[in-house]
Design a protein around this nucleic acid. Structure first.
Lengths: 342, 342
DNA sequence: GGCACGATTGTGAGCGCTAACAGGCACCCT
DNA sequence: AGGGTGCCTGTTAGCGCTCACAATCGTGCC
């Protein structure tokens, strides 16, 4: 009979004593081993309940060399896309019994990504998901020395890193084709920053579609994803000699800024200009007018990346190379910001 | 001389051997103990570099009983507010040398919050930040049995839990007063869900201000924060006998929906109706017209909550009760959606 | 009745680290 | 000269768990 009860949180040995078994049997019950007599299991479970026992995961991690924690490196989780992806990653991981440790970066540079990765390695996570939408980030990820399983989200084709990505260029092609089919002679594009792989994918899809249609390829304008830069792009478009009557903007936020610039100039959407965005943020449906845009299934991206990562973590890294890239198809959502050319 | 190099990642003993010291000295160097001769420290550091040694945090946690990990329970991190708060929490924590483990909930119920909390306790985090904007969540947090340090963000006054919160009612009062000062006879309010503490705080600030001014108090309309519900609220407002010419909406997203409804009805903002939102999301400046709204300093909320939590974690829980609530002041941002009453 | 065999349980060691203590050495004071 | 007083370093003992192996128990079969 020990003197002080609950002086310190109970350990496996306490449970064992109360249940009249060895600590090893307790461990077996906890780990769902077969070959534990039901009656014994019952007694152990009872003791655990009585004592309010929780096993010490640090001790467990020390011997198993697995922390059951997954690291996520993300960039600006304040934006809708990354936030949604992160959200679904977290859910999928928890469902699979893993913890999530995140590092979210303010800026993406080779070194900041490198630091974030080694921070996670330090923490001995079992695997890493890197949301690496920029070329430099993708490179830093590809260079991760340790043998740690890693999956890149929106990463490039660089190296052998498995990737989960939305088919950006297919989405852009859908948007552009839609505009062309409405009778617009060509489509102006407001692109994202050149370092962003997503921006380049969308740019490519747009250009290919325009060229395939034999339409003239207007000079692009670059933004930085922010509404402000969309506004600036709008002003720039308005200053052109030939004002376009169809614009495909690389994301919804910039589209909002651009709409503002058009409104200030007294132009109506879609009467004067047809507009297509990208992302389908929750607000897009309530823009004036409701925005035709390309929806990305961020939830699926998150789920797929966890699936891929856990496959790597649990079944080793010997996988067929053709499975190393999971592509999620985007979908054009038609609303009121596009209309036939007048 | 051991046979296989790097067959397994090096441990403290390997470093010790290479540096010609005991493992304890290595530990001392790693933990910045005084009383290590500079030359010795140098040799140890060298050995660490050569071997690429990283200490095993599980082993460390096992003996120190500290994991250096903080848990965060959040709700719908897809929204701008929670996402921004989370972002700054993560940064502040990392700066202080702590890891962050998040659980983000889809729904807030007593049990889902309870589960999330015990999930984190299971992981033996050193402390918890709960973003608990609903009454039920705040209650569940207050009930956390274990002696774990915990800080609630936007939690109620319930119990003894330390809280960091924005002064919602002061923000709402600023917004309402602004509208009143423009000459509007009264201000309509589109509120958030009744279970949300933030919604109730804003409602209170609005009502008090109206009453203090001796203006009639219109019946409120409730939304659920989404643009869609703002749209519905807009339709409802338009159906009223007395169409208001000033509306204070409990968040920016709903305001967007409401603006859409007004636009469909041919009403102009601010000429026909003045509008004030809440949050100052990055898009607000580019609504048509740019939205007057109340800015919340989410970054400060995040930083303050980490500061408070670490204080609890590191200096024990004996603190003066007057420090137990940190209030962040919101700020009215005047833009183009409000104008003097005609 | 004895024996093989599988199911069930226990024993001992050790994961990699830090805490507590002990020892050795140089230096200073009386 | 003796002993105290710091500084620096090493030794030992766990933290709470899982793994490998050993031991025990029951059962069926010849």
């Amino acid at each position: 009979m020990t003197s002080d009860v609950a002086a310190r949180s109970p350990v496996m040995a306490d449970v064992a004593e109360l249940a009249g078994v060895s600590h090893q049997t307790v461990s077996r019950v906890l780990n769902d081993h077969p070959n534990v007599r039901p009656a014994t299991r019952e007694r152990v479970l009872d003791a655990i309940g009585q004592l309010g026992y929780r096993r010490n995961l640090s001790a467990r991690a020390l011997v198993t060399r697995r922390t059951n924690t997954l690291g996520v490196v993300a960039f600006d989780t304040t934006l809708y896309g990354p936030a949604s992806t992160l959200f679904s990653i977290e859910h999928a991981a928890r469902e699979a019994g893993y913890f999530i440790s995140i590092v979210s970066l303010k800026t993406i540079t080779r070194s900041s990504v490198g630091e974030a990765l080694s921070y996670l390695v330090e923490q001995s996570v079992d695997g890493i998901i890197a949301i690496a939408p920029q070329r430099t980030a993708a490179e830093a990820v590809a260079e991760l020395p340790s043998g740690l399983p890693i999956v890149a989200v929106e990463g490039g084709e660089a190296g052998t890193t498995p990737v989960v990505a939305v088919d950006q260029s297919a989405g852009a092609a859908q948007a552009t084709r839609h505009l062309l089919e409405l009778g617009h002679t060509t489509v102006q594009h407001v692109a994202g920053p050149a370092e962003w792989l997503e921006a380049e994918g969308r740019l490519r899809g747009w250009r290919d579609t325009i060229e395939d249609a034999g339409a003239p390829v207007p000079e692009i304008i670059r933004g930085d994803w922010s509404p402000r830069s969309g506004y600036a792009a709008g002003r720039a478009v308005l200053a052109r000699r030939h004002r376009p009557d169809a614009i495909f903007v690389a994301n919804d936020q910039m589209t909002l800024g651009l709409m503002r610039a058009l409104a200030e100039a007294g132009l109506r959407v879609p009467d004067d200009v047809s507009l297509v965005g990208f992302d389908d943020v929750p607000e897009a449906e309530f823009f004036s007018p409701p925005l035709t845009t390309v929806r990305q299934d961020f939830a699926e991206v998150g789920r797929a990346s966890i699936r891929m990562l856990l496959d790597l973590v649990e079944h080793g890294s010997q996988r067929a190379p053709d499975e190393a890239r999971h592509v999620v198809e985007p979908e054009l959502i038609r609303r009121a910001s596009t209309a036939p050319a007048s």
